[in-house]
């Protein structure tokens, strides 16, 4: 009987500093700094940034390449591929294709590498570690 109240009190307690932290962050913030410098959080951050940042640079460059080619390589873009379909058209459709592929790829990455780590950390925070 004695253990029951303590276990219910456990998860309740961290709620207090949490709601207090929402207004003037005081002691509650230390928890975030501790989590932020933990190895697990470092892994989560790395998994997110090392995927999203290079990929963003890649697709923006790929898109700008298309914009620049349209501007300064008109002859090349006008080259016939088949019938009335030219390189410019194929380039445009390729942008659609890569967008769909990147969205799909990111979702797979997030489900495998980000979600489990985020969930574990969140559970730890919620348990008031």
């Amino acid at each position: 009987m004695d253990t029951a109240p303590t276990t219910t009190q456990g998860p309740d307690e961290p709620d207090d500093p949490e709601t207090a932290a929402a207004a003037p962050p005081a002691a509650g913030n230390d928890r975030f700094s501790t989590v932020q410098s933990s190895a697990e959080f470092g892994e989560l951050r790395r998994a997110q940034r090392s995927f999203a940042f290079p990929l963003t640079i890649a697709f923006v460059s790929w898109y700008l390449l298309y914009v620049l080619l349209s501007n300064y390589a008109g002859d090349f873009m006008g080259t016939t591929v088949v019938g009335n379909v030219n390189v410019a058209f194929v380039f445009g459709l390729a942008q659609f294709l890569t967008t769909f592929l990147i969205a799909w790829w990111y979702s797979r990455h997030a489900a495998a590498k980000l979600d489990p780590r985020a969930e574990a950390l969140r559970a730890r925070l919620e348990a008031g570690e």
């Binding site: 932290a21 962050p25 913030n29 975030f32 700094s33 989590v35 951050r45 985020a118 950390l121 925070l125």
Partner: peptide, 18 residues
């Protein structure tokens, strides 16, 4: 308190805590 605030934002934004 900038460092602590960024820690809070970063942790919350990546984990969804709170």
């Amino acid at each position: 308190e900038a460092d602590a605030k960024y820690a809070e934002l970063e942790v919350r934004s990546l984990t969804g805590y709170g």
